[in-house]
Design a protein around this nucleic acid. Structure first.
Lengths: 365, 365
DNA sequence: ACCATCAAGTTAATCGATTAACTGATGATG
DNA sequence: CATCATCAGTTAATCGATTAACTTGATGGT
């Protein structure tokens, strides 16, 4: 029932096949067609076959607006990731998105992708806009305005947080155990004989400066960390302390997430006499490596290094850089699973997933 | 008018505010509210203010399913990209997606992202599914089944192709001038004194093997290339010929897009005596570099190299790798612009955009 | 033979916003 | 003063699928 309709001058536009067209051609009611499609009421084999034949003949595709309107399900999930163009996190979050899309597609869901650019105002706008467009939201929250987010996300909305956690958030989430990986990494540096270990990272988010150096004695497992960078920093301090090494605030530098900043801060650390550097951020690691190479410092004899996340380049520099690898794709898969479960069963208890990092020992320590 | 509704056990669910609720509270008709929101009919200042106040008070958000159903606009654009997990193209297409999302968001549109995984069957399913969900489709088509795609994309659907082009496709597209960049790159290698230049690439798609080595005399501008890899290959041949160098089929290797394949094929080329390699693909370039480094070959004295696309790693290996850079983000921006234009004016003439690559001369030739 | 039950479809209300057609009031015009 | 245009807002049809409630005919137990 592909109808031709006049449109503009002489242009023709094909009107979509409706369920009514199918019903008429198959000589049944629209209800029956719907039942055949959705399989939620018994329909005899004979009629089912007839309808299915017509469905194929007309190449029918249900109008999803109508469907959503009536059923209040959009079969769509929103994803908000926070990437600045210059940022290291791009590839990390894109792998997460890939994992989400793959899982969702297999269950008949779609993914709407959006970028908050690490800006909490944009984030709130996006959340608001998503309200009537999606069945659920997977969110890597920005570092500010947690309260506002908590208010905006009401019970109309299934939510799964990833990578970071708003304080006081009650709900499903998938995080990476950044403490564990970092702790092990620092430990290994120490085992290899390094004693003056520098720590390089991008910012901790909003509540950074005041308590930046307040040592937290508890371990990751019992605590809810706001932010992966902070978690890594805590792990760094605990690992030092567990190895009876002094924590030296001069060996810790936070800067913006850029190549240049990595270059500059590595320079500073070296001038302060560190013998190894842990870099909690990919693009800063690149900047640091550049500086080290320019200085003709020998890795690992002159200086030890560990980076974060297993980017391509870590394998082909010489020597290959050891790294802590986050399971990005897997975060996406797990987050979608939580989401789909919650949609199916909204009253179930909240699920908290913490994925392990992988410690890739290469030749840089 | 936030209503509490019983839901399950004791759980409460907040029902969304409808336009009717707004109308009642503002003591006007739903039509008036709609006019205020969409501004397509004159409403007096007085009433407009009253309505706007209520809109804010109730934090009203239009139900987009209802809106789409009535207006037949979804305000959503679909994007299908073709990435295999192992593939080099991941970062390229993700940057395109970023550009698209940014542009669309600024115009009030959403982006549904999906991955065909370079599989034409999945691609067709996605296209079909998108039919009632989006106003338009931005597509980087797979290499097979062009005919099927052309049939499936009917006039219900605005389409913009990116990166690749189905033969015979009539419509908007945004491509990269791969010929130009490659041609210049090869030329520069030759100018630097290299004479036996190898060419490494991933496959050409379906119609590869038969005419793989058939030299095409025409230039890019007058020709419609199916596939960027092919375009690069053509440019390679033309550049050789323009420099009176013989084309040696033994110096050309196509393989799968993987690190290992890059490693292996570089090995083969070297053993065949090439003095420079042009690698049309990021991950294969990584593999090649790995092999070169292992062999302690000196770049560029021992061997010249040019890679494709400006990935992070190309800057920090020593020496930094020269590369042809595609304007990925810009492809996304331009494609979205074409799309939005076409939605506004469906009968306008088709637009064809071909973006220039950037030639990043570093120290590898 | 009688009524209850079930099986297999159908009828029609419904979701929420848009928008063509309409109403009533005001004002301009010859 | 009758007539018509314009203005500002309202009424109600409509988009297409889902689904609760209903119909109709068949089955079966006592």
């Amino acid at each position: 029932m592909v109808q031709q309709v006049k449109f503009g001058e002489d242009m023709k536009r094909i009107k979509n096949v409706r369920i009514k067209d199918v019903a008429e051609k198959a000589e049944v009611s629209t209800a029956t067609v719907s039942h055949v499609i959705n399989g939620n009421k018994y329909v005899s084999e004979k009629i089912k076959n007839k309808v299915n034949t017509v469905l194929r003949e007309l190449n029918y595709q249900p109008n999803s607006a109508a469907r959503s309107l009536r059923s209040t399900k959009t079969n769509t999930i929103g994803l908000i990731i926070p990437i600045n163009s210059e940022d290291t996190s791009k590839s990390f979050f894109m792998s997460i998105a890939e994992g989400i899309e793959e899982k969702l597609k297999s269950k008949g869901y779609n993914l709407i992708l959006s970028n908050s650019k690490e800006d909490s105002e944009q984030e709130l706008n996006l959340i608001k806009m998503f309200k009537t467009k999606v069945d659920g939201l997977i969110l890597a929250p920005t570092n500010e305005n947690f309260k506002a987010i908590n208010e905006t996300i009401d019970h109309n909305f299934q939510t799964v947080m990833i990578d970071r956690l708003p304080v006081g958030y009650k709900g499903d989430y998938v995080l990476v155990d950044n403490f564990q990986g970092t702790y092990e990494g620092i430990n290994e540096l120490i085992k290899s004989g390094f004693k003056k270990i520098g720590f390089l990272s991008s910012g901790l988010g909003v509540n950074t400066s005041s308590d930046k150096f307040e040592v937290n004695k508890e371990r990751s497992n019992n605590r809810m960390y706001i932010n992966p960078n902070n978690e890594r920093f805590q792990a760094y301090k605990v690992a030092l302390s567990d190895n009876k090494l002094n924590f030296n605030p001069n060996y810790v530098l936070f800067g913006e997430s850029s190549f240049q900043s990595g270059y500059d801060l590595a320079k500073q650390l070296i001038s302060k006499g560190v013998d190894a550097i842990f870099i909690a951020n990919n693009i800063m690691a690149m900047g640091s490596v550049k500086f080290i190479q320019e200085q003709k410092l020998i890795i690992p004899d002159g200086i030890g290094m560990i980076g974060y996340d297993n980017y391509d380049w870590t394998e082909i520099i010489s020597p290959p850089l050891s790294a802590i690898k986050q399971p990005a794709f897997e975060i996406g898969v797990q987050a979608s699973e939580l989401m789909l479960n919650r949609i199916q069963n909204p009253t179930a208890g909240f699920q908290h997933i913490k994925l392990k990092t992988e410690n890739l020992k290469r030749s840089s320590y």
